[in-house]
Amino acid sequence: MVLVGCHVSIAGSIDLAVGRALDSGCDTFQIFSRNPRGWKAKDIDPDVAGAFRRALDASGIGPAVDHMPYLPNLASPDDAIYEKSVAALTDELRRCEVLGIPYLVTHLGHHRGAGTGTGQERVVAAINRALEEAGAQGVMLLLENTAGEKNSVGSTVADLCRIFEGIDGKERIGICFDTCHAFAAGYDLRTGEGVDAVLEEIDDLIGPGHLRIIHLNDCKGDLGSGLDRHEHIGLGSIGEEGFRHILSRPAIRGCPLICETPVDGRRGDDGNIAKVRELAGA
């Protein structure tokens, strides 16, 4: 048995996302709590938050996962962008608390030429500030690995470890592991040996128990390409055999699996969820 779901829309009202998740066959699901392409967000109406909580309780699925919007850059050397990014992270942690969402996934940003070490220091300071200012003790912030693109500060397990080590409230931090990003960054997930190697690296450098969510995505790019382009499960460069290896590992099977895969004429969200269950033998 695996818990698998997808990213669903909040169009119309956040509470409607729960029904959409059910319609897609989700056991778990991910949302943006607001427009992901803008800086400003309206406060969540208490009635809407209550409706979301009631719908989630009645659905029998979960956990719900929230994802940070696209614009914040916690590694930015630009002070204006950086301050807006810290404020956005702080606000999103509070929004999760209002909605009763236990996990917030964040990308770690890009240093824009300032250097990886400098960018990582900016991320650490941003997260420490946001966790302190937000409160939101019931919300765990998950650091997501990136695809090895230019100026990235969190593409390797060692990168994530350096950031993790600098954070004060480590009990409030976990890892969201994205399979597409890892493959694009050079982790070969097509073999059992490759999957075991990255899981062992996470345990050795960050510690057991910190892997909390899996973003389960195939990759359009080649191994080590740095290309952050998601593909349907089994139809990309990782392939079905790779996902059989991935989905056979207890450390991964024990985490909620979120597909952020395309919706097109080949397959929709329900099709990718069904494929994951097939490959997992669930």
Score class of each variant (00 low, 15 high):
Tyr82Lys: 03
Gly234Ser: 08
Ile252Lys: 04
Leu89Tyr: 02
Gly109Asp: 07
Leu257Asn: 09
His110Leu: 13
Glu171Asp: 14
Asp57Trp: 08
Glu132Tyr: 00
Ala41Gly: 11
Ile163Met: 08
Leu211Tyr: 02
Gly221Thr: 09
Thr191Ile: 04
His245Pro: 02
Glu241Gly: 02
Thr90Gln: 10
Ala126Leu: 06
Ala251Cys: 13
Phe183Glu: 01
Leu216Glu: 02
Gln120Thr: 09
Pro262Phe: 06
Lys220Leu: 12
Gln120Glu: 08
His232Phe: 04
Asp57Pro: 10
Gly109Gln: 09
Ser13Leu: 14
Glu200Ala: 15
Ala17Leu: 14
Thr146Met: 13
Glu149Ile: 10
Ala114Val: 05
Gly100Ala: 09
Val123Ala: 10
His215Phe: 04
Arg162Met: 09
Glu144Ile: 02
Gly221Met: 03
Tyr187Thr: 09
Lys150Met: 14
Leu227Ile: 15
Tyr103Asp: 05
His7Pro: 07
Asp78Asn: 15
Pro262Glu: 03
Ile273Asp: 00
Gly109Arg: 04
Lys275Arg: 15
Leu223Ile: 13
Val65Asp: 01
Arg277Gly: 04
Leu141Thr: 03
Asn73Cys: 07
Arg20Ser: 11
Val139Asp: 08
Arg122Val: 02
Ala80Pro: 01
Leu247Cys: 06
Ala58Val: 10
Gly265Gln: 04
Ala197Cys: 07
Leu143Glu: 01
Ala136Cys: 02
Arg249Tyr: 08
Val263Cys: 10
Asp168Gly: 08
Lys150Arg: 15
Gly25Met: 01
Gly100His: 06
Asp168Leu: 12
Asp27Glu: 08
Arg53Ser: 07
Gly138Asn: 14
Arg122Ala: 13
Asp168Met: 10
Asp27Val: 07
Leu257Trp: 06
Phe32Leu: 02
Ile238Ser: 04
Asp196Glu: 15
Lys220Ile: 06
Ile202Phe: 01
Arg190Tyr: 02
Phe164Arg: 11
Ala51Lys: 15
Asp23Tyr: 06
Lys40Thr: 03
Lys220Trp: 10
Val198Tyr: 00
Pro46Met: 11
Val124Asp: 09
